[in-house]
């Protein structure tokens, strides 16, 4: 297991929706044994160096591109929403879906290590949702998203929101096939988050400062946060809002409508 967050071997414990798949991981193990005895065969003698020069993310990147093409054919705007745990992803997504209303129909794929609490919160609001519980894995990958998307009626949707596992490190490396990566920074978290987690903030197309109704209570230094965001996420579009009060939501929703029109 990895030391920082307990992330495990990809896929083994992943469960999607209401179904429990028992994915057996046979690969790799049967090989290696049984072949040892042929060591003296003509074809397997001596040391050799095989040059690869390939990305370790290659398999995920290919699956992500496949997802992207599929989603585009379905005319879906796809968002990958990432943040620390507790930045308000679920409330932000719920309010986005509710305020878009019949204008744009939103479906959600939610990733968490365990529980379907977030999915239940969204389902209660009438939003089509599929939960992925990743077990020990600290991020969603393109394959999990592909399998989860199959459980939504995508033809009835205009926007697919993927709520990633709350984690500002690992999800940065995994393209899911999204159109936009949306990173949230809540006013209660500290203005230096972008500096502490630059790969994630740098990879985002959109940065959203959330819970801005609590800014003064939290002693939030807006100028400093914006300066830090502009330094690391310099190409990202920035929104400041409170999903709870609705303050600033209009600009974000208008942006989504405009982005959806371009799909």
């Amino acid at each position: 297991m990895c030391q920082e967050c307990g992330c495990g071997n990809g896929g083994g414990d992943v469960k999607i929706g209401a179904h429990v798949h028992g994915h057996e991981h046979h690969h790799g193990h049967e090989h290696g044994h049984g072949h040892h005895d042929h060591g003296d065969h003509g074809h397997a003698h001596g040391k050799q160096t095989v040059s690869l020069n390939r990305s370790l993310m290659e398999k995920n990147s290919l699956l992500a591109e496949r997802n992207r093409g599929f989603f585009k054919a379905k005319k879906l705007l796809v968002l990958n929403v990432v943040s620390s745990p507790g930045s308000g992803k679920t409330t932000f997504i719920r309010e986005t879906a509710a305020r878009l209303g019949a204008n744009l129909r939103v479906g959600v794929i939610v990733g968490d290590l365990a529980t379907d609490n977030d999915a239940a919160r969204l389902r209660t609001a009438g939003i089509p949702v599929v939960q992925i519980t990743t077990g020990t894995v600290c991020h969603l990958d393109a394959d999990m998203v592909s399998r989860a998307a199959g459980q939504l009626d995508l033809d009835q949707l205009d926007v697919l929101v993927i709520e990633n596992v709350g984690n500002l490190v690992c999800p940065a490396d995994y393209d899911l096939g999204e159109d936009l990566r949306v990173v949230l920074l809540s006013v209660t978290e500290g203005e230096d988050k972008p500096l502490k987690y630059p790969p994630m903030f740098h990879s985002a197309n959109v940065a959203v400062i959330t819970k801005n109704d609590m800014a003064s209570a939290a002693g939030f230094n807006r100028e400093l946060a914006l300066a830090n965001l502009n330094r690391v996420s310099h190409h990202a579009q920035i929104f400041e809002l409170s999903a709870k009060t609705g303050n600033g939501m209009k600009a974000w929703l208008d942006f989504l409508v405009q982005q959806r029109a371009q799909v």
Binding site: C7, G10, G32, R54, C138, V169
Partner: peptide, 22 residues
């Protein structure tokens, strides 16, 4: 961090290459 997932993928590619090379 996701080092285990990444290392699993590296090992898969290495073993595929080894098998292809006999």
């Amino acid at each position: 961090m996701h080092e285990v997932s990444i290392m699993t993928e590296a090992l898969r590619m290495a073993m595929d290459a080894a098998k292809s090379a006999g």
